[in-house]
């Protein structure tokens, strides 16, 4: 295996909400092209961790370095990081007052100052990739949940990010729509993008993850490759967690 550089370096990350400590001494390195799945019970801090990476959440102690840029309040740095780090949300967060196409071209036009024609071309490209090109002129509320989430993924792809963050992307979907979104994510995983996914979909983790991380009560309990993680869990808490989610 060639020496890959670390694109995300998290050192001694600690975060408090008021008196409550939500992240405890997180240390994590993510290599370029790695697929990381973060699992754990609700309230374990996994969403918070991922949202720190693109500075949607701030933290009191520790450092996060993304693509050799250290996260801070520096506006230029934040902008630079957000241009290369994309986020897909649990509740899609598409802009309801804009068409699908406008949702995708908004950032390229206003942030990257791309000419409109070019932005539309790129947008249509990605819409085709996720299979929604024919809905380009519709509004988000006219699409199903699965379709909206695929649009959200396309929206985040428009700036060709090297790192993609997923915050429970299928948790708000009806069961029959989960697979269409996972299929898109699996395709992306084959394209050597760095991906950090918070998800309950263990099938996805088994298929494409390079590493699976188990978090509970704000700290990383165990991390391993998928084979070891699922079949030979070491910690008691992970064993308990796996028995709960895999029993049905």
């Amino acid at each position: 295996m060639e020496q890959q550089e670390d694109v995300i370096e998290i050192r001694n990350l600690n975060k408090w909400y008021g008196e409550f400590q939500v992240l405890k001494d997180i240390n994590l390195n993510v290599k370029k092209g790695e697929i990381i799945v973060v699992a754990g019970p609700s309230g374990s801090g996994k969403s918070t961790l991922v949202r720190c990476i693109n500075y949607l959440e701030q933290f009191q102690e520790g450092t996060i370095t993304v693509n050799d840029v250290e996260l801070s309040d520096d506006v230029k740095k934040i902008k630079a990081i957000r241009e290369d780090v994309a986020m897909v949300f649990q509740s899609f967060n598409l802009f309801p007052h804009l068409t699908i196409l406008d949702n995708l071209t908004l950032a390229p036009i206003w942030v990257k100052k791309t000419p409109k024609k070019e932005a539309i071309e790129t947008a249509m490209n990605y819409l085709e990739r996720v299979g929604i090109a024919d809905q380009a002129k519709k509004y988000p509320n006219q699409l199903s949940g699965g379709q909206q989430q695929r649009v959200a993924i396309a929206r985040s792809l428009c700036k060709n990010p090297s790192i993609m963050l997923f915050d429970e992307p299928t948790s708000a979907l009806d069961p029959e729509m989960i697979s269409e979104v996972l299929d898109v994510m699996i395709e992306l995983a084959h394209e050597h993008r760095t991906m950090v996914c918070v998800t309950h979909e263990m099938g996805f983790a088994k298929k494409v993850a390079d590493r699976v991380i188990f978090m509970e009560s704000g700290q990383i309990i165990e991390e391993n490759d998928p084979e070891t993680f699922f079949n030979h869990p070491e910690s008691e808490r992970l064993k308990l967690f796996l028995s709960q989610i895999l029993s049905h």
Partner: peptide, 11 residues
């Protein structure tokens, strides 16, 4: 200049 780009400083 980096000082001026800090979000808090701008605030």
């Amino acid at each position: 200049l980096a000082f001026l780009r800090d979000r808090k400083v701008r605030g």
